[in-house]
Structure formats: C-alpha cells, structure tokens
C-alpha cells in the first residue's frame, strides 16, 4: 500500500525514538502524506510497525484534528474562526470562500479540489484574518486576496 521509500522513511523515524510508540504521530503524518488520508488498512499497518493494536491507533487518530480518515480535497482550506480573526473580519472571509466554492465548512467540492474547514486559532493572530491551505499560511486576507490565492493554485 505504501511505497518503499515511505516505508524506509518510517523505519528511520521509528529508529529515532527511545520508545517505539512515540513515533506514532510522525509516522501517521508520513502515511497521510502519501495516501492523502488514513484508511483502516493503513492504521492496521501502523499498528503492526509500532507494536500497537488497531484500537490504539484508531482512538489516537480520532483525538487529533489533523488526521483524515476519509479522502479530502487536494487543497484543504482551513479558515480560522477564533477571536483575533473574528475581530478582524474572519467571518467575511469564510463566507466569501463558501460562496466562491459553493460548499460549507466540512464539505469538499465535487471536483475534489477543495475541502473547506473552519479551524481554531492557527497562530496567525497578529496578521489576521488568516487561513492555511494545506500547510501554507495566508495572512491579512481580504475577499480579493482570497480570489487571487485561489486563482494562483496549480
């Protein structure tokens, strides 16, 4: 299911920790990077590598918000809804995105390009309103900026 490179990368990560289990989160990130999400089989495999049970892995995955158990869009747009962004017009950005993409938070565009999420503070408060697309930060958003950003995505 995973490429040999990824598997080797995972073994290297595991080797770095004094206790195998500690490698869980980084390993999950690597798996998710390759597959786009974390299907059951992937969790079974991770469990095997780390001497854990499926239950362990699954309950841990579900504790954290950055893991996806189902496929999501190629671009995961995460708009911040917390105070600082709210104070600086974050809601307008979200509404603009909803209109532009025709989806509500939690949904994915039919072409599978975009998934929209409302997230809690992403650490961009001083440059609000802000969002992240996948791992990239976008600050000082305005509806126009948002349009430009979307247009610039490959």
């Amino acid at each position: 299911m995973l490429s040999t490179e990824t598997k080797e990368r995972i073994q290297r990560i595991i080797a770095r920790y004094p206790v195998k289990r500690s490698a869980l989160l980084p390993v999950l990130f690597v798996v998710q990077e390759e597959l786009g999400y974390l299907p059951d089989e992937a969790l079974h495999e991770v469990a095997r590598w780390l001497d854990l049970t499926f239950l362990d892995v699954e309950t841990i995955v579900s504790f954290y918000t950055m893991f996806h158990r189902r496929p999501i869009g190629r671009y995961h747009i995460q708009v911040c809804r917390n105070v600082s962004c709210y104070l600086c017009g974050g809601d307008a950005i979200r509404e603009h995105l909803e209109r532009r993409l025709g989806i509500r938070p939690g949904e994915t565009t039919p072409d599978g390009r975009f998934t929209l999420s409302e997230v809690e503070c992403i650490g961009a408060c001083s440059w609000a309103p802000a969002m992240q697309i996948n791992f990239t930060f976008y600050h000082h958003l305005t509806p126009e900026r948002v349009d430009e950003i979307l247009a610039s995505l490959p």
């Binding site: 049970t53 309950t59 504790f63």
Partner: peptide
C-alpha cells in the same frame, strides 16, 4: 484484553470496541 477505548475528543468522546 485491551478491547475498549475512547474514540473522538471532548463531548464527542465515545467508548468503542477494537474492531475497525
């Protein structure tokens, strides 16, 4: 047996069994 765990977080926490 370690057959039970908690899935989810906060108010969404639910007890779950060990199958997928």
């Amino acid at each position: 047996n370690h057959a039970l765990g908690v899935r989810g977080r906060g108010a969404h926490s639910v007890i779950v069994g060990n199958r997928p």
